[in-house]
């Protein structure tokens, strides 16, 4: 068996960490105006249940009044929210532009994999009805969330009004419904879990094994999805009255920022998945819809899926 070097085994992880590290360094060092010291301390306080944002006892009556009336430490997180919401409108295009350039590079380098199919009727059922339902619900809901989310981000272009407001409400309701779909998909796509259980027990796991590049996508889908679900649900349900405002406003600011950041990252990796499934391999989407792929397709493109199905006795 051919042995692989550390670089070959972990290339996807190293490149992802490097890319995010460089982008993160530029963002944190030169663009963001968040008070990181406060945010780190605040997170520690929040983890033990104190979300008020008052990290030290007020030193004066005035500070006590400000904490009680308006919420503490306005200058730590709020200016970052203003900066981010404005600059998202202007600069989020660059994220997509950069990603499309990466795809163009990959397409020029690798082209499109087109399996040779001589026996189109010899097909293998790969996905169950349940798996397809979860996958397409996920695709549909994420598409709605992306479109209605951009409806908020780019409100300046629509200039507001009833339709953008209804779309914003739809974003919140779809987001709440997506929590269940995100959770189920995260579980059934956790292919590494299969080694821990018998296939018969966990028959709902998607067949096949993860290559590192796909595992990275799954990880970011799971982690950023968790951040989005948590922050979104809390933002919707933590609805402060005029008297509870000071207690929750800092928590909501941090959650909104988490929502902003997680949405950009998940979008990046979802687009990666879209490229991998719709562009880089011919015939992938068709099978995703019907649930079955030609045997030759699997032999050439996804032998690991075929192996899994054989082990499970499903073909």
């Amino acid at each position: 068996m051919e042995s692989k070097t550390f670089w070959e085994c972990n290339k996807a992880y190293i490149l992802t960490a490097l890319g995010l590290g460089v982008v993160g360094f530029v963002f944190v060092g030169f663009l963001m105006i968040m008070d990181w010291g406060y945010l780190i301390q605040y997170t520690m306080h929040a983890l033990i249940g104190d979300t008020s944002g008052v990290l030290t006892a007020p030193a004066s009556e005035l500070e006590q009044m400000i904490n009680a009336a308006f919420g503490p430490a306005y200058n730590t997180v709020a200016p970052e929210i203003i900066r981010a919401s404005n600059e998202r409108q202007e600069y989020i295009w660059y994220v997509f532009f950069a990603e499309i350039m990466i795809f163009v590079f990959l397409y020029i380098k690798n082209g499109r994999v087109t399996p040779t199919i001589t026996r189109p009727n010899d097909t293998v059922q790969v996905l169950t009805s349940f798996q397809r339902a979860v996958i397409w619900l996920n695709i549909g809901m994420i598409s709605i969330l992306v479109l209605t989310g951009f409806n908020i981000t780019w409100g300046l272009r629509s200039e507001g009004g009833d339709i953008p407001r209804i779309l914003r409400e739809f974003h919140e309701l779809t987001g709440l419904a997506w929590i269940a779909v995100w959770l189920v998909f995260t579980v059934i796509a956790a292919k590494d879990m299969k080694g821990w259980r018998k296939n018969s027990t966990f028959r709902h796991f998607l067949p096949g094994s993860f290559k590192p590049s796909k595992r990275v996508i799954w990880f970011f889908y799971a982690a950023m999805g968790a951040a989005l679900c948590f922050s979104g649900a809390m933002i919707i349900t933590l609805h402060p009255s005029s008297l509870t405002h000071a207690d929750v406003i800092q928590f909501r600011r941090v959650l909104l920022y988490l929502h902003f950041g997680a949405s950009v990252l998940i979008m990046f990796f979802i687009l990666d998945f879209v490229y991998a499934s719709a562009v880089s391999v011919k015939g992938y989407l068709k099978g995703l819809w019907s649930g079955s792929y030609p045997r030759e397709y699997l032999e050439q493109v996804a032998p690991d899926v075929l192996d899994d199905l054989k082990k499970a006795g499903r073909q």
């Binding site: 709020a78 929210i81 507001g160 407001r165 914003r168 409400e169």
Partner: peptide
């Protein structure tokens, strides 16, 4: 559109 950003700011 009721996004609530003004509340955060």
């Amino acid at each position: 559109i009721g996004c609530g950003y003004c509340l955060y700011a």
